[in-house]
């Protein structure tokens, strides 16, 4: 009897295990970017009826699994299927409408003609090659061209998640309350729309499948040994920073503020600097760019050896899954390297 009771308990608790809480999972994994009620933020809105009416659960599940490589949206590989399903149910709960059913049949169209239509009707928002708008999501605080930035379409994650039927539906009906309009209403024919679907589909041949990581950067810092004294090196750095068109914000010890004045290690010095127009551009492509701020160089003297160190922006950048940010980080890598070279040689 006891035994039976135990088995019963085990079954109950494993049922509980297999029914993860969608709201809690959404809150901890998605809300920071998509908003706690799905209104959007760093990510696009998810709660709009026009969005939920145009995607099926398979699209949502695959989007969570594959993410959007290079477009901020992470790939959630560590979640279990049950957890992914729970999140999808939570998202579905916002609409209460039946889930659309797209016929699995591939859409047949003329991709060449679709390409011409894409050039005249889509590139303004989705980019010349479907790479998406500058920045992502709703990005509340900063200047932007559209209330919602158009997603990337030449994206392995998008292409793997979207069925032809879903793309066609999105073009036919648009997404009300977003900049994405109905192209039937804009005067395109059903055949034009099929041609566009075929063209969007053709992006798939040029992109790496989701989950394929590109080469990883292993150098975590940019480092140089200085042939000058600590004081001279700091002076050199201040000059080098200004000559790279950056504004010097502050020079102080690494331990400043962590301990009482006078107790700080004076042989560990940080120079903080910034270029505000560069920063402004970077904030538009990723509001999380604060993790690189302010720009800084650290100078240390240990056993008479003066070392100058910066973060490697390329190393840090790969954590953000944002290819536009990678471009800024390449430029920043160049700036840091030039400053170090200027100041230490």
């Amino acid at each position: 009897m006891r035994m039976l009771f135990g088995v019963f308990l085990l079954t109950i608790s494993s049922l509980a295990l297999s029914a993860p809480q969608g709201d809690a999972l959404y809150a901890s994994h998605c809300a920071a970017c998509h908003g706690d009620t799905g209104a959007g933020g760093v990510g696009v809105p998810l709660s709009l009826p026009s969005f939920l009416n145009s995607v099926d659960d398979d699209f949502l599940r695959k989007t969570i699994r594959y993410g959007r490589p290079g477009r901020v949206m992470p790939a959630f590989r560590a979640l279990s299927n049950a957890q992914v399903n729970a999140i999808v149910r939570h998202i579905r709960g916002w609409s209460g409408k039946p889930v659309p059913d797209f016929s699995g049949k591939p859409v047949r169209g003329d991709a060449e003609h679709g390409k011409q239509l894409f050039a005249s009707h889509c590139v303004a928002c989705h980019g010349a090659n479907g790479e998406g708008g500058k920045g992502t999501g709703v990005t509340f605080s900063r200047k932007r061209d559209l209330p919602i930035i158009a997603p990337a379409l030449n994206n392995a994650g998008f292409l793997a998640a979207a069925s032809d039927g879903m793309i066609r539906h999105t073009l036919q009906f648009g997404r009300e309350n977003t900049p994405m309009r109905s192209f039937l209403e804009q005067g395109l024919s059903e055949q034009d729309i099929n041609d566009l679907v075929s063209y969007v589909r053709s992006f798939g041949s040029g992109v790496a499948p989701p989950g394929k990581q590109t080469a990883t950067v292993t150098e975590t810092t940019i480092t140089a040994e200085s042939s000058y004294s600590l004081e001279e090196t700091i002076e050199n750095l201040e000059g080098a920073i200004v000559s790279q068109n950056f504004i010097l914000i502050r020079t102080g010890t690494l331990e400043h503020g962590l301990t009482t004045e006078g107790e700080e290690d004076s042989k560990e010095v940080i120079l903080h600097f910034c270029n505000f127009s560069f920063l402004y551009e970077a904030l538009k492509v990723d509001p999380r760019v604060g993790m690189f701020l302010p720009c800084r160089v650290t100078v240390t003297e240990r056993d008479g050896k003066v070392m100058v160190t910066t973060i490697n922006p390329l190393y840090l950048s790969r954590l953000f899954n944002n290819s536009e940010l990678d471009e800024f980080c390449k430029r920043m890598h160049g700036v840091y390297s030039a400053i170090l070279e200027d100041a230490t040689l």
Binding site: L258, R288, M291, T300
Partner: peptide, 28 residues
């Protein structure tokens, strides 16, 4: 920072905090 000089470039740790409409987002 004594034991791992590479960390002198990254420490002390930081948290970005920014307004998003009526709400606030934190990143680290």
């Amino acid at each position: 920072t004594d034991k791992a000089p590479a960390l002198t470039a990254y420490l002390p740790p930081k948290i970005s905090i920014f307004a998003e409409g009526e709400q606030t987002v934190l990143v680290t």
